[in-house]
Amino acid sequence: MTKPLIEVKHLKKYYETGHGKNHVLKAVDDVSFHVNKGEIFGIVGESGCGKSTMGKSLIRLIEPTAGEVWLEGEDIAQLPAKQMRQKRQDMQIVFQDPFASLNPRMKVFNIIEEPLINFNTGTKQSRKERVYEVAKQVGLTEKQLERYPHEFSGGQRQRIGIARALVSNPKLIIADEPVSALDVSIQSQVLNIMKDLNERFDLTFIFISHDLNVVHHFCDRIGVMYLGKLVEVADKHELFTNPKHPYTQALLSALPKSHPNESKQRTILHGDVPSPTNPPSGCTFHTRCPNVMAICKTHSPQLQMHEPEHQVSCLLYEEEVVVHK
């Protein structure tokens, strides 16, 4: 069995709301999953479900409240700041807004080179060669490296962001909605660049998105988040053909038909997503669930293996509940 590159155990990120320690916003609430080397693991869910907070907590751009993050057998959540700083060579992030994440006063060459200088990597000449190498890999020319970020389109800026993440030769890249701000035609170009990097260098991605079509095209496995929790994790083909959780079923039913003659039944979720500062008791999805049972209001389900490589957090699939429902 392949040992995971990264293993996340009971990760939590809580924010105090200013109304005392008993009032907290549970942005990420007891999330556990693993990602194998060379895998593209997708995280999908509605806006505000905690996807981006979880991604930033993994590499401690945001300090997690609790939990473990094991990268190649080392719990990076417990590393002192100095050691964690060096460890970030192995973990990089591509942000959602390519313009806001680039220094407008720096030329593209210096933006891409900066991580190498930050980690004291190589000589001036070797850094120059490395910058040219990664620029070519993402489709940038040497001439373009002498320009400033404002001289580029959104898709080109995202290529710069990918090159900056790639230059330190990381083992893991967290892509936080990297194509959501781009036109559809440009999205495919950026996705193809990242897919090529994954295949050529066995590079591991955690890909965060709210677009189901994008994660279906790009990812190997997918985790579905709702209100700070993972409610389902499965291979992408399994998830799209055999969704188990009512929330996943509702998300997939909202996708457009692939053919005019396709018959499709839409699952409508009523009500808004509850506030993470005051989540419902029991299963947090029970206020919107079309299959809600009385026990859902008092018992909180756990993410469990239902079928081989298919995890679901729903009381409908817990045997002791099904027997007595």
Rank of each mutant, 00 (worst) to 15 (best):
R157C: 10
N120K: 15
N103T: 09
K56I: 01
N120T: 14
N103K: 09
Y148K: 07
R60T: 07
P98Y: 02
K56C: 01
Q78K: 15
N110L: 09
Q125P: 01
Q144M: 14
M54H: 05
K107L: 05
R88Q: 13
R130M: 07
P104W: 04
R147V: 05
K107F: 04
Q83L: 14
L71H: 01
F119Y: 15
R130Y: 02
F109A: 10
F95T: 00
I59V: 14
M91N: 02
V134T: 06
A77L: 07
T121M: 13
G67C: 12
V94N: 04
G42V: 03
V108P: 00
M54G: 03
E146H: 15
C49V: 09
W70G: 05
C49F: 03
L61N: 07
G45I: 08
Y148D: 06
P64E: 05
N110G: 06
R105N: 12
M91G: 00
F119L: 15
Q78D: 13
G139C: 08
G154H: 02
E72L: 09
P64G: 05
H150I: 11
Q96W: 00
E63N: 12
I40R: 04
G67M: 08
P115L: 06
G48H: 03
P98A: 02
E113T: 02
F109T: 02
A66T: 13
E39M: 06
R88E: 11
G48Y: 01
G42Q: 03
Q92T: 10
M106Y: 08
I112E: 01
V94P: 00
L145K: 02
G48D: 04
P80L: 12
E114P: 04
F109M: 07
Q86L: 15
T65V: 12
R147L: 13
P98D: 04
K136M: 08
Q144F: 12
K136P: 02
N110I: 02
E133R: 11
G48S: 10
T123Q: 07
K136S: 13
G154Q: 04
V108E: 06
K107I: 10
I59G: 00
E142P: 06
L145N: 06
E151D: 11
S47G: 10
Q83K: 15
L145H: 02
S47C: 13
G48R: 07
K128S: 08
P104Y: 08
L145D: 00
G139Y: 02
I112K: 01
P98T: 01
E114V: 06
F119W: 09
K51D: 03
M84C: 11
T53K: 01
E72C: 09
R157W: 01
